[in-house]
Nucleic acid binder design. Sequence first.
DNA 1: TCTGTACGCTGTACATTGTACGGCGTACAG
DNA 2: CTGTACGCCGTACAATGTACAGCGTACAGA
Lengths: 270, 270
Amino acid sequence: MPTERTSSGDPAHTLQLLWRGSSPDRRRGPRRGLSIDAVVEAANAIADAEGLDAVTMRRVAKELGVVPMTLYTYVPGKAELLDLMLDTAYARMPRTDTTGQPWRQRVTAVAEENKALFERHPWAAAVSTVRPPLGPGQMSKYEHELSALDGLGLSDVEMDDCLTHLLTFVQACARAVADARAAQHDSALNDQQWWELNAPLLARVLDENAYPTAVRVGAAAGAAHNSAYDPAHAYSFGLQRVLDAFAALIDRSRDAKTSTSQHRHDDIAP
Amino acid sequence: MPTERTSSGDPAHTLQLLWRGSSPDRRRGPRRGLSIDAVVEAANAIADAEGLDAVTMRRVAKELGVVPMTLYTYVPGKAELLDLMLDTAYARMPRTDTTGQPWRQRVTAVAEENKALFERHPWAAAVSTVRPPLGPGQMSKYEHELSALDGLGLSDVEMDDCLTHLLTFVQACARAVADARAAQHDSALNDQQWWELNAPLLARVLDENAYPTAVRVGAAAGAAHNSAYDPAHAYSFGLQRVLDAFAALIDRSRDAKTSTSQHRHDDIAP
DNA sequence: TCTGTACGCTGTACATTGTACGGCGTACAG
DNA sequence: CTGTACGCCGTACAATGTACAGCGTACAGA
């Protein structure tokens, strides 16, 4: 499954599509048979049901009872369609109201919301967001998620840094889940079966004296998770680590504000 | 660029290839003109120079002066070739000896080694490792990296959890770098140019009252990084967070050992 | 009402991918 | 010396995004 990228075309046009700007040109010729929303809707439905690989221009067109090339009168290309799909998914995320709750619960809620996004739309995990879709969905998501980190004594840049760190983590977990599902799909083995098949074969070829720690720890971890990698555990373990890290940063920000020393602690090893 | 997956074929055969097991069968017919090592070497060279997309069976074959189908007498398929490529890259990673140094430096060294791996072989970031290549390279890498987390009072499972958390983080950063490079390549704009082009257009369509925090924080972060996302900063910031998190976990493990209360702290919010 | 034209829609076409299949010739086992 | 296992190769197929050119429609201006 590809790490899909988004719009490489004209930014102004892409933004106009994302914000559903109307082209003020006089309309000539036949009335449009479809709408951008219908195209995005169809693409999202296919992606949800069968994954991003199934979203081909041909397939989306077929779903809409139209020939592939017709889509190009609604969308400049597949990259822009991906932008629109992702922003739509962002727009529809339920946003829990956690005002008044302690920050750990608020941040946990943000993580859970994103985890839920990737469970409902596994394809979204595969899309790179180094150049996020600058649409209303992304904006309202960003606004909502920042509010969980507001009022903790962090600077604006630190708030963004922390959110990025958290979201990167959740997305990485989601990608692992998606990869595991894909691997299962085309090897006809789930992770546990794959591990049960490989572990004894590996043991036979492995020199236990050459890798003592690896053998011991690998066996313990394999036994704990019934596999080489357990995405669900990685998520719950990792989320606690991220929360611990934020706690340390927040404490440090508070200290820096109440004390006279204003130096940053980030770049020095204590 | 695809999130490539690895071997879906016969595990025993794959392991035999990874550990360079010799097939004891009597040799009949013409002598082999190539070797597995040569094939993997050629594939790695192409991937290093031009990215994983350039690694096609046709291209590897051409590099070896051979017709594409010939490769299939050395390797069952492309997935297995990827396994071999990755394990080879793992095997060649320089492993810094940090015995005796404080754990933060040891863990930082592990992170840096992996960061260096992904800088030297950017394609490696795109390969999923939920089913890692169970070869000598992976094993010796695992052994080496675990040693940085040994003797800190963590359980075997926690050591594996922490290492997974760290490596997931570094790989996520590397994927972001790779995605940024790919986006730059086929949009002819680097991240800064893309941001400078989009920011004013976005400002025109954006209602500042609807997204007050997003606009403020986004502007601060954008100004700090000259872009929507700065991979280098995300790495250095995130690594400090991961170290802080490990510190908290280690402290807690020490406390749990010295106190009589043996309950786990992980699953409860303090 | 008539006509020119902008525009929605479509059919064909191309280069590229991994790899299944069958044929050809070689070099060793007996 | 001969049969056969095996290395190597040429062709073929289905699937992808999308460029290009043609066709017909419905509105603007007369």
